[in-house]
């Protein structure tokens, strides 16, 4: 048979068909002999996890955490967004028991919005807190307060931080507790606290009283009244600043009422 006489369409179809057959066979063999056997539980654990990929567990994402749980026996109560529900499912699936860590939420420890904490100068640059901080130490008169340029809000995977009137505010109901915002704040104003705590000192200024008063109308002036009310160290003085010890439950309305500058709030 002379190859030149064969119908070119049929020849092409034949050639492609043959190539397909050979490749298919190669793939079938590869799938059989080169297969990677992954523990099927990894995928199943990953399905249980919420898939937020927030990194709050300190692993690179949900899939990485699932791998660590199955292979390296990592603690199973690290998923903050998942909470009790995910933990229960994980316990049932893995046959383990674990104490749920209390759900945490972020809080911005500053109450000085534009009306309460004046600015020293007009900042006209990159809308980023670290950049603003680098220009003569930030435009806010208070050297410790929230600059309000939203670095925390931009990094939040859940959209839980709102910048209102020049002040960042965390919406507790939306916060998944991953802690990404804590690192984003150049003034370290954001803390992760147990969700059940309701009384906060919204100030981080380490200046003395008269300086604070000039910089902000809702700053802690270090009068120590709250520390006397919370006499078990729930609120303690750290130099000129009252600091809540969130490890100790505390719910005494008196501290809120007696604070002369109203920097202690219930939220």
């Amino acid at each position: 048979m002379d190859i030149a006489n064969v119908n070119p369409v049929a020849l092409t179809a034949l050639a492609i068909g043959l190539i397909g057959l050979v490749c298919g066979a190669a793939l079938a063999l590869a799938a059989r002999f080169l297969a990677v056997h992954e523990d099927p539980r990894i995928g199943q654990v990953a399905d249980i996890l919420p898939g937020a990929n927030c990194g709050g567990c300190a692993y690179a994402g949900c899939a990485d955490y699932a791998k660590a749980i199955v292979l390296n026996d990592a603690a199973i109560n690290l998923c903050a967004p998942g909470g009790q529900e995910v933990l229960d499912k994980l316990c049932a699936f893995l046959g383990k028991t674990a104490e749920a860590a209390e759900k945490k939420t972020a809080i911005v420890l500053c109450g000085g919005d534009s009306g309460k904490a004046p600015r020293r100068f007009a900042y006209n640059g990159v809308a980023d807190c670290a950049a603003a901080q680098a220009v003569h130490g930030g435009d806010k008169r208070c050297g410790y307060g929230c600059l309000g340029y939203g670095s925390c809000a931009r990094i939040c995977p859940a959209g839980a931080i709102e910048i209102a009137n020049g002040l960042a505010k965390v919406h507790k109901n939306l916060c998944i507790g991953c802690g990404a915002c804590v690192k984003a704040c150049p003034r370290t104003l954001i803390q992760m606290i147990p969700v059940s705590r309701t009384i906060h000192v919204l100030c981080r200024s380490r200046d003395k009283g008269p300086v604070v008063k000039k910089a902000c109308s809702v700053g802690c002036i270090g009068c120590t009244r709250c520390a006397k009310i919370a006499d078990d160290g729930q609120i303690a003085m750290d130099g000129p600043l009252a600091v809540v010890d969130y490890a100790k439950p505390f719910d005494n309305e008196e501290a809120v009422e007696k604070c002369p500058t109203h920097c202690i709030v219930r939220a």
Partner: peptide
Amino acid sequence: RPLVQHMRGGKAR
């Protein structure tokens, strides 16, 4: 564009 501010911030980082 605040180009120098970007550079300063980036260099520091």
